[in-house]
Design a binder for these strands. Sequence first.
DNA 1: TTCCCGTACTACGGCTGCCGTAGTACGGTG
DNA 2: CACCGTACTACGGCAGCCGTAGTACGGGAA
Lengths: 111, 111
Amino acid sequence: MIGADAIRGHIDLILLALLEPRPSYAYEISKTITDRSGGDYLIKQTTLYTAVKRLQTQGLLDSYDDVSETGKPRTYYKLTPAGHEQLDVKRDEWRSTRDLVDHFAEGQAIP
Amino acid sequence: MIGADAIRGHIDLILLALLEPRPSYAYEISKTITDRSGGDYLIKQTTLYTAVKRLQTQGLLDSYDDVSETGKPRTYYKLTPAGHEQLDVKRDEWRSTRDLVDHFAEGQAIP
DNA sequence: TTCCCGTACTACGGCTGCCGTAGTACGGTG
DNA sequence: CACCGTACTACGGCAGCCGTAGTACGGGAA
């Protein structure tokens, strides 16, 4: 189980990366995260919708309504061009952060 | 430059790992982080002291005062046995988080 | 001496982001 | 026709990192 504090700050990257290949809607995104993490991370609905709104406000996501197979309207989210750019930026930031924490975590002594 | 939001939640791991080989004091810890990150991450004094206090409250760090080479008293921090245990736990948590974010960030599509 | 600078802290409030809890709404299915 | 799955929204809580600011003290230089 992965806690909120550990993942905090990286949700946006995860969402952008998930939506990179094609648009999706909240419920599917949520299921995908659960499945692909092997159940290790369960994103809360509030967290997901809040994050999506935030990304939309920043102009990184667009949304459009469409009717699902079950006849219900759904809100699909897709990356904007800015979203694609920002995904690259966030990937770089993540790699830097990851390498930094790895470096320290792997027990380098104070010289 | 690595932002606070990116590193958030992993400061404790970094501090515990830095103090694993031997005790140190705030100023040295701060310098070490700056140096070892190549200047990419500059921990704020408030962040550092807050984190240290938190770890002490949790029983993961002990402190003792000693006189430095310059004649000034310093507060040294060292891991408690519980701190050593917790360091292992936090290392595991970090690896899980890292692998999860890596997995998503590397562009796995929604199937 | 006096003054500045490096070192060693503390105080306090702000903001962001994830969470807990809770509620609405609507359609299909048994 | 009652329930359940799906699709959201509302609202407040809290932790953690930051900005800013201040105190204190010793050593070196003018």
